[in-house]
Design a protein around this nucleic acid. Structure first.
Lengths: 143, 143
DNA sequence: TTTCATAAGTAGAATCGTTCTAACCTAAGA
DNA sequence: TCTTAGGTTAGAACGATTCTACTTATGAAA
């Protein structure tokens, strides 16, 4: 994601928003709203959670950010707008990006269904967990 | 899904569980916990929501049911255990099944990552919405 | 059949991520 | 400077899910 303001003229680049954009720029960790809030709080101790959600919502409507639904417990956000797939370790929760391969149009789709996006997720066991390195079953913070 | 008790000897087939299984058997509507609860309530007015969640959790651990994460607002459950993909209308929320096509192993996965499941979701506009038939932007009940 | 251990069910509280609301703040244009 | 509208904030509200304490049902053993 390029770290510059959206074309939308109503979008004001405030310090909080600039910092959110800076944090997301090139970030491959698929942060949750809380991750972003925790990070921003360091720089803006008085910051509100609502600002994070508002900004994320704005960025999504502007097409600058995607929400990924891999984690049922919380929303995660992905600034990587070049098409890519996700690889998820069911033991430790690691989420990695994969280069997208060309996806053939699906067979069996109803006539007239217009496909916009294709999402591919692979679930499996990462090398560390496979070796028994990660004792934790699920390391995603539940708190 | 076959409507019979799992092999797990600790699984007791109670009337509530039998009814949940019957409701899920062959159900392609990807019901949420609330959908299931609402339906079961007709037959068991005294039923608790916790029973629904407990049973669903048990069925998932037994590998009899899959949780699908297409809808960020609530969990949905899919008894169709034969591999298949999902097609989702971003306007009306319709979720349809697609026959799974053979998915080639992903390129770029870390060495030693053991793939277990591959999930493919197509997002788009269904024929009805494309024709402007569905005026509702999102018909998923938001309450 | 009675006893007993334990799985399952219930009501309702608790949790927690997310959204909403109302008040205030601030930048920018008139 | 005044006005306006978008942005921020604190905190309440919301809603899906989980947890807890308790009761009930089941099935095996005595």
């Amino acid at each position: 994601m390029k770290n510059k303001p959206p074309e939308n003229p109503a979008f004001r680049m405030t310090p909080q928003r600039a910092e959110i954009l800076r944090f997301l720029d090139g970030n491959k960790s698929h942060p949750s709203a809380e991750d972003i809030y925790a990070r921003l709080k360091r720089k803006f101790p008085g910051m509100s959670f609502a600002t994070v959600y508002n900004t994320l919502q704005t960025l999504i409507s502007n097409g600058q950010l995607a929400e990924i639904k891999i984690d049922a417990a919380r929303k995660r956000f992905d600034p990587g707008l070049t098409p890519h797939h996700h690889l998820l370790c069911v033991r430790c929760g690691l989420i990695a990006d994969l280069p997208a391969r060309r996806q053939a149009p699906p067979k069996g789709a109803p006539k007239g269904f217009k496909i916009l996006i294709c999402n591919v997720e692979y679930y499996g066991i990462c090398p560390a967990c496979g070796r028994g390195g990660n004792k934790e079953k699920i390391s995603w913070k539940k708190k």
